[in-house]
Design a protein around this nucleic acid. Sequence first.
DNA 1: AGATAACTGCGTACATCGTACGCTGTAGTG
DNA 2: CACTACAGCGTACGATGTACGCAGTTATCT
Lengths: 280, 280
Amino acid sequence: MAARMDGPGSADASSPASGETPAEPRSSTRLPPVISLAWGLQRRPARGPRPGLTLDRLVAAGIEVASTEGVGSLSMGRLAKQLGVGTMSLYRYVSAKDDLLTLMVDNALGRPPAIDPATQDWREGLTLWAEGVRAAYRRHPWALRVPITAPPLGPNNVAWLEAALQAQANTPLSEQEKLSSTLLISGFVRNESTLTADFARGAGAGGEQVMPKYGELLAMVLPEDRFPALHRAIHSGALSDEDDIDHEFDFGLQRILDGVAALIEQYGPGGGQSGRGAAP
Amino acid sequence: MAARMDGPGSADASSPASGETPAEPRSSTRLPPVISLAWGLQRRPARGPRPGLTLDRLVAAGIEVASTEGVGSLSMGRLAKQLGVGTMSLYRYVSAKDDLLTLMVDNALGRPPAIDPATQDWREGLTLWAEGVRAAYRRHPWALRVPITAPPLGPNNVAWLEAALQAQANTPLSEQEKLSSTLLISGFVRNESTLTADFARGAGAGGEQVMPKYGELLAMVLPEDRFPALHRAIHSGALSDEDDIDHEFDFGLQRILDGVAALIEQYGPGGGQSGRGAAP
DNA sequence: AGATAACTGCGTACATCGTACGCTGTAGTG
DNA sequence: CACTACAGCGTACGATGTACGCAGTTATCT
């Protein structure tokens, strides 16, 4: 785990890597090798022994370990043991651990639900979408602990993006606005899912107690005179409820969708495609 | 870096640690030791040699290293060298690296702007607030790479929370809703700041190119027939603009604030304090 | 004043990781 | 059958977080 938390001083980008044999269009910008892998754009070399494993098996085993022991415990050695191979064998399939993580996360997302703009309006569609992403994160909480290091290019990530755009197809929003709304909701769901995962069973990622205690802890720390607004909040009981966490998701999503609705209304009645042009 | 990415199977919580000498109120729930430190609730022991360092110097040096070389390069050894002491000396001030990071992040946030509900309405206040958080993250991009592992209890975090609540004081929202709105905005700003930081200078955390290329990369990967909505978006040029990133922030914030405004309007005209009770 | 206790600085040691390198064996190709 | 490109993987290295315990320091107690 290095590149995933590196700061300004890390420029290990290029290095043409090894097995890039793409059937992809020529271009100045190259596809990151991981992405070629994820889309299955790699030809298997003709010569040499047949590989004993497959990328899919690596990813599946990685997900299994991450699910049962947490990503924190997922080391290359651990994964190799799971698969009954030597540690270094894994590097025949994946050029670095980060690649594996990228693949695992994309895989964990799964396929998006089919959204038909003809039978569902944008709000239903985006709600379905957001709940779908949340469900995926609920199934694979470890995915939330993997930092995002690159824009979403994996097959499932892209499919989800497409689904969100389709949900907004019958909307007067510009393409830019559709993308922005999607980004907004996607980030929101990820945040909220992380919170939910941390709160679940009262243990944060560090292992400490979290939610119902939060108000109590805050109260212990506050110089009673400053922080009057916080005191009001604490004493209103707003920080003591246990099931708040589920409400947070609905609350946030409704707020965001209301905001998008307000934007759509600015385009005036009549709806329909329009695209381009800044909001009035 | 272990606990920060650990999954389900990590229960290293307790262990009464060493130097807890709190002047804090009795309670069943203990304050995490780091938090006592952050609020300066530790008495210096009477006996023994005077410490050669201070927590503040640790934190300041940590921030300096993180700022210039990235958090990824901030190791205990590196920090010790910066301070001209032995590595293990640091553990006299901080019980683990995670504590140091927590302290650093809280410190990086700085003090919130003063928000007076009498002269600013809630929307101005929250806008100011959001921009303040964003500015802090812009000053300390490395803070975005430190995973959140516990609810915000540091002095600055708490002060920012208070400020957000104060901005909404003259609002009919319930305390619960004020907190939820704050959480929503706070998460949003963090997300957006992370994206901005990654996009800045075209390098993601992994070191790859990011933004203007994103549309191009997507286009390389898409089976042209599926993903029609995405194709529309790409060809609209929505993914090619360079300065979109700054617009994203405004867009998202406006959407969220519009959503909050919609909620406030549901309370009907007249405004004023009310609190409690679910929305009509 | 001397003894004692509490504390600080920190050297050493260890366990864990990611992964570069290079050797050995294998499966198609010429 | 030789050759070549590739698969599996043992070994080794450099980082890193931190437990442990020793030696020196200082305030308090006798």
